[in-house]
């Protein structure tokens, strides 16, 4: 059964089409990778799924319900968790408090009920030593970890990850992959936008390729990477 169904999603900024009739479905428990050159519309696609941007046309179905017209907080409560490509921490709250916000509001529970879970997530994502520091004092890599931790705290059914591996060392990247695998094993569906291909393909079962807002390929990673169109557009620019 699909957890997410995108039906002919379109979005323009002025004359610029950033999403052009995008349709695909994600099965419950599936992990899907999204690739495409910078400016292809990957982050925009996430913003449409989460409701931060409104679609111009098309429909979004999540967990059996049409969420196209719902605001972001309702979609979060329904089970869509996301990270921002450019981290958006609550700078004057501590790292732990950032998670408390996400956990208590994002899963509609009391602060008391979610304290333990937040602490466990901090340990899992390696942020525990920073728990009581202001989020504004974190460096970029830790801010990215905080994005992941905060999204997890909302207890999502679907997790959208936007370029969280960029800038990591080989070892850190391996750690991150392990963390994401563990999340996936718990039954969380994942869509992951990433340029670090070997990290991506070690987690996801299918890849989607975006180019100028259009979906130009979807399928298992080997086939996708072998296709001529993808090699020309994507690898030609990236490598």
């Amino acid at each position: 059964m699909p957890i997410l169904v995108l039906d002919q999603l379109s979005k323009s900024f002025g004359a610029l089409k950033v999403a052009d009739q995008i349709s695909f479905a994600l099965d419950e428990g599936e992990a899907l990778g999204v690739i495409g050159p910078n400016g292809a519309g990957k982050s925009t696609l996430f913003n449409l799924i989460t409701g931060n941007f409104r679609v111009d046309s098309g429909h979004i179905q999540f967990d059996g319900r049409d969420v196209t017209r719902q605001p972001p907080m309702a979609r979060c409560l329904a089970g869509i968790g996301r990270t921002f490509q450019i981290p958006q921490p609550f700078e004057k709250l501590t790292v732990f408090e950032n998670l408390l916000v996400a956990a208590s509001f994002g899963s509609n529970r009391s602060e008391r009920e979610v304290g333990d879970r937040c602490a466990d997530i901090l340990v899992e994502t390696g942020l525990y030593p920073k728990a009581n520091q202001l989020a504004g004092s974190l460096g970029l890599l830790q801010r990215k970890r905080l994005e992941l931790a905060r999204a997890l705290a909302t207890d999502p059914k679907l997790l959208l990850l936007d370029e969280i591996a960029g800038g990591l060392t080989e070892g850190e990247c391996q750690e991150l992959v392990e963390t994401i695998r563990a999340i996936h094993r718990r039954g969380v569906s994942i869509i992951w936008v990433e340029h670090v291909l070997n990290a991506l393909t070690s987690v996801v079962g299918r890849l989607v390729v975006l180019h100028f807002g259009r979906l130009i390929g979807i399928g298992d990673p080997a086939t996708i990477m072998a296709s001529r169109e993808v090699r020309e557009i994507y690898l030609g620019i990236e490598v």
């Binding site: 989460t50 931060n52 605001p71 972001p72 907080m73 979060c76 409560l77 996301r82 921002f84 958006q88 921490p89 609550f90 700078e91 004057k92 709250l93 408090e97 408390l100 916000v101 996400a102 208590s104 509001f105 994002g106 899963s107 509609n108 602060e111 905060r150 909302t154």
Partner: peptide, 18 residues
């Protein structure tokens, strides 16, 4: 907490259920 979150970053707060 919700107030502080909205004050610091409205867009992120919206995405986290506030």
């Amino acid at each position: 907490l919700g107030l502080a979150a909205v004050r610091d970053n409205r867009e992120a707060a919206r995405s986290l259920g506030v």
